[in-house]
């Protein structure tokens, strides 16, 4: 049983901003409940008021303006996994969405809710980092955009202020010629490890590369130093570099031992999955299940 709750249902961003300003810390934004209701039930979170933002039409849209894919915060994982424009312009992201938990969670859970919750064991954020996605935040003071990498501040923590609402996720397609893949390791509903890679090849060498790793430490993150190191290398040499980077990965990813695996195991598997992700990205750009 859940403790008593009260509900506010704004229908515009302005109304939602008013509600956030008025109820502030007594309220939680409710965008689907797939994560929030679990925490409330387990007593890990308390709130008196839910601000249900799903009545705001703008937050349900997926649009493509020929430059960027714009996804409203309340679009469900299932919609993203099956949407034709998402599959065309961000295929690895669509694949990651198709792997989130189970079909019931995908039907109910939303991308905005997932990113704001920032559970370290999650799929979508890792791929979005490779796309260099940005998030639009709104409050009474107006709207502003920040890169997703700055939005993920720590485990279960984001740069979102108490009076702010996540409105949209802006996903640029990868540069022309760059193909991507997302590979994940899972035993339970939540992934143990997720690796996203995107690479552009030039005559057998890596001309450009982007790598992100999720689930190992507190938040998903890009690995810019490793990207620099393997640029200009042949695939076989890049894979050798990945295998030699245990200390770098440990410092950078800050692996955590938890129910899904020990820190050393996750580090080892990160090296293995970096290889898999790179091979799949340069193979055909279409990740396999």
């Amino acid at each position: 049983m859940l403790d008593s709750l009260q509900l506010v249902q704004p229908t515009t961003v302005a109304e939602a901003s008013e509600a956030l300003a008025e109820y502030g810390d007594d309220a939680k934004i409710y965008a689907g409940g797939a994560e929030l209701l679990l925490l409330l039930r387990q007593g890990l979170l308390q709130t008196d008021i839910l601000i249900d933002v799903k009545k705001i039409e703008r937050l349900h849209e997926i649009s493509w303006d020929r430059k960027t894919l714009v996804v409203g915060a309340c679009v469900t994982h299932q919609s993203l996994a099956t949407d034709s424009s998402v599959r065309e312009h961000a295929p690895s992201f669509a694949y990651a969405e198709s792997q989130v938990a189970n079909v019931r969670v995908r039907n109910q859970g939303t991308l905005g809710g997932n990113l704001c919750f920032n559970d370290p064991h999650s799929d979508p954020g890792t791929v979005l980092l490779v796309h260099e996605a940005a998030v639009t935040l709104g409050s009474r003071k107006g709207e502003h955009e920040i890169p997703l990498r700055d939005f993920f501040s720590d485990m279960y923590a984001t740069a979102l202020n108490a009076d702010e609402l996540l409105l949209e996720i802006k996903i640029p397609p990868l540069p022309i010629g760059m193909n991507s893949a997302y590979v994940r390791l899972h035993r339970y509903q939540r992934p143990t490890l997720g690796v996203a890679a995107a690479a552009k090849m030039d005559n057998g060498t890596v001309e450009d590369i982007r790598i992100a790793v999720g689930c190992v430490g507190p938040t998903a993150q890009r690995l810019p130093e490793l990207e620099l190191k393997v640029k200009g290398m042949k695939i076989a040499d890049a894979k050798r570099i990945f295998a030699e980077q245990k200390n770098y990965l440990r410092d950078r990813l800050r692996p955590v031992t938890d129910l899904l695996g020990g820190a050393e195991y996750k580090l080892y598997m990160t090296s293995v999955f970096l290889n898999h992700a790179l091979e799949k990205a340069v193979g055909n750009g279409v990740p396999n299940t």
Partner: peptide, 18 residues
């Protein structure tokens, strides 16, 4: 009661939810 087991699955407008 954590969307994992599926024993409470019902369909809402044809879609399965917990």
């Amino acid at each position: 009661e954590s969307e994992v087991c599926g024993a409470c699955t019902v369909l809402v407008d044809g879609r399965s939810i917990s």
